[in-house]
Amino acid sequence: MTSVAFGVVAALTLLTALLVVRVTNLVRATLWLGASLLSTAGIYAMLGASFLAGAQVMLYVGGVVTLMIFGVMTTRRHEGLAAEAESTNTGRATAVSLALFVLLAWAIHGTPGLDVPATNGVGASPEALGRALLVDHVLAFEAASVLLLAAILGAAVIARRRDPGVEVPKPGSRAASMPHAAAEAP
């Protein structure tokens, strides 16, 4: 029974992932990514990682997908979404990804000891995970929070509104060397 359920959810994950990379409309592609990430959360739940499944839905689907959708909305006009020029290297890309998949499958097949049931080990309760994060690996935890802070600040600084003529661009920066480019952007 669980194998059938796993097969269904795995197929769903893979199918939505294929749709993400093939669909031309970017908003739809982002929503298919949301669906793929949701199915992955289902896989985590089936593997016993319930907290991670919940965190995946909260962070990825509720956060990352939203961010990307904002990104798409602010940079693309509604009418221009489907008018994406077809890429010229689909053939080579398919060859590369298929070759990589064959290589990985062969490596997995060749590694001994991988045919164990997927839920062989004792599941980690949220309490055990919390203890591991905050007691055993607290340094990595704090470093990750510093990283997130740096990412927030960096993203805010990179994408902030620059009024032309009010700010003096730093010497050596792109805006300083090519001021006409910044003024020219439609």
């Binding site: 994950t13 896989i43 298929l98």
Partner: peptide, 18 residues
């Protein structure tokens, strides 16, 4: 549902991303 099955799924997802 074996470990190798989940790893194959992960490989397929990765190659789709590539």
């Amino acid at each position: 549902m074996t470990l190798s099955a989940t790893l194959l799924l992960a490989s397929a997802l990765f190659c789709t991303g590539i």
